[in-house]
Design a binder for these strands. Structure first.
Lengths: 352, 352
DNA sequence: TGTTAGCACTCACCTGCTTAGAGTGCTAAC
DNA sequence: GTTAGCACTCTAAGCAGGTGAGTGCTAACA
């Protein structure tokens, strides 16, 4: 059977109507609400075909049709853009996002948290956003050792991108200030500008050789620096609007809501959503997962839309919107694009 | 009417039974399950009295009784301890908590997060825990200035309790290393050991006087130090097991669950739970809020039990457990006591 | 050959009715 | 003061019937 123009129009109408109402849609509704001048009987025949092709189903005999995952897929991939003219109304909402992101918020944490909240409020879905992380390890910019207490050494480690980490080392020996100064010089002349991979064994033995009386300490410090550079513990996931899912009966019933909320609470469970985007792939960088396509099991009854933002070459974060399968894909995709580009801009501005 | 021994026993039995089953409890049940050798008819009379006194109610005519908030209150304040002999069984669970907290977890954040999770798993209620905060401002331990880029100065500020904060100052002048060394010495000799309140105007003008060429910078640094010491932004609330509330039908129905989950997501809404304990008050430092007594509106159908832990004089955090009014108060209170004392120990150990 | 009107049929949902069971309050007897 | 007995109340569950939305199929129409 062929998916001709008319069938597409009907499918589009069915999905569009279902997105709005959340109720199964019948042939009469389509007959009345499309510009196709067809009776409900004709529509019925076409819908029967569409069902056979796997794009729509009846929840039970003699009820209207609702889209299948395949139906949504087709809609998202091919039909959605047909309605671009309607976007103007939605643009208004998005302007709020634009304006907000243009305001200055000083701390990144707050910025991301607010972005999540804003998206959640504007879309009425649950949202998540991650801090940007670098694919390759960061380079060491410099290191600063200072004595905090007589047996506690503070190591301030500054990496590329001005990521600052503090580590405390408990000393097994007494150090005087002069020695600390020497160690500072030793480390900064040897390690600065290197990435984790470049700090090899040769380098380490060279350093321990230059400070034979404090070999152990030097090793400790190198360890700490290595861990700090590798450490992704400033990788955070912020979420907002998890309770929005209660607004959608098809999710709030049974155990689904509980599972989803739990996933949001244990933010680690969301890591699978983070895009493994190949560098330089597709222009959009927006992913839509429908139902079972989702990488997170607990969301198999939802749809998930993610975008990847990039604040500099190789340093990316992920924004995600989670809602019912009948989410307003257009609005969500549009909102993500706006946020993504605004975030890009903001970070670039900050950089320069 | 007087609340005699027998009435107390019956009330206790009603509440205990209701805590277990969650169903209204009838006179026959009590007649069978207590050691009082009384018929159901007698129990009925007594229950009628207890209802008149406001300790129990019938959800509808001709159903069993459930406790009122006043009933729970009486139970928590006076009746609960009668069953201390049963605690041995529950002790086993608590040992798990003890063992866990004795294991070393390096980062405080992780420790607290895990504690919340552990409590949630062991009690089947929702839990929260805050980072410890100091009532009075912290004292400055030392400060370390270093040049990060040619126009960016890194200030590492270490406060009492080894709280470390990093701040970046953008320079309006060029500084050489010698100058930075001088500034380091100036700040550390003048400010170390002082609290925010003690850094008064006299001190500031004395310092700017000693570095007239860099007056602006000195002022900037003092500002940054002041803000960092006052800043409570490392105050965090960790939560766990929010979805546990779905296990209790009386909460999961209607909008309550959604509201509670929302409160847990917007952690700020939980701040009202944080104890304003007067120093040196009551030995227990465990608070039980039943129903409407709660300081957080969205939890008016729940009970909330909080404990305050203190890692050093004046530096306290709050642990909270949120569940249905029919929560197992004994177990919860016991668990909180264990966690509280273990946390105390752990921090003291670290200190020493 | 595609489109339409008509009709029988299905199914979810609502309403009203009935029944069973748990539990009460009251009274009278012990 | 305690108890047995009884009438009463209320919930929960199950069943019957009616309604309406929607379908599939067939036959007639353009």
């Amino acid at each position: 059977m062929e998916l001709d123009e008319r069938k597409l129009k009907i499918l589009n109408a069915v999905i569009k109507n279902y997105l709005e109402t959340g109720e199964p849609v019948g042939s009469r509704t389509i007959s009345k609400e499309t510009d196709l001048k067809l009776s409900s009987a004709t529509i019925r025949n076409e819908m029967s075909d569409l069902e056979e092709m796997g794009y729509i189903v009846q929840p039970h005999t003699s009820s209207g049709r609702i889209p299948t995952d395949a139906g949504y897929r087709l809609y998202v991939d091919n039909l959605m853009r047909d309605k671009e003219n309607e976007l103007n109304a939605k643009e208004r909402d998005l302007n709020e996002i634009r304006e907000f992101l243009n305001d200055k918020v000083d701390r990144v944490e707050e910025l991301l948290q607010n972005t999540a909240k804003l998206l959640a409020n504007n879309t009425n879905y649950a949202t998540m956003i991650t801090t940007p992380v670098s694919r390759r390890g960061r380079r060491l910019k410099f290191i600063q050792l200072s004595l905090m207490e007589k047996d506690k050494l503070l190591c301030v480690i500054v990496a590329e991108g001005n990521i600052i980490k503090n580590r405390i080392i408990t000393l097994r020996e007494i150090l005087d200030n002069e020695m600390i100064l020497k160690l500072n010089i030793l480390f900064n002349t040897t390690l600065n500008g290197l990435s984790l991979e470049e700090m090899n064994i040769g380098l380490i033995s060279k350093m321990t050789g230059q400070a034979t009386e404090h070999m152990e300490l030097v090793r400790d410090i190198i360890d700490v620096v290595g861990l700090a550079l590798a450490d992704e513990d400033d990788f955070k996931i912020y979420t907002s609007g998890a309770t929005n899912i209660f607004k959608y009966p098809e999710l709030s019933g049974s155990g689904t809501a509980s599972e989803i909320i739990n996933t949001f609470e244990e933010k680690k469970l969301l890591t699978n959503l983070i895009g493994e985007r190949e560098p330089g792939q597709g222009s959009e960088e927006i992913q839509v997962y429908i139902g079972n396509e989702t990488p997170v099991q607990s969301m198999k009854d939802c749809s998930v839309v993610t975008a990847t933002y990039e604040i500099e070459e190789g340093v990316t974060g992920t924004i995600g919107i989670i809602g019912p399968k009948r989410m307003d894909y257009e609005k969500v995709v549009e909102a993500l694009k706006v946020v993504k580009s605004q975030l890009d801009d903001r970070f670039k501005k900050h950089d320069g």
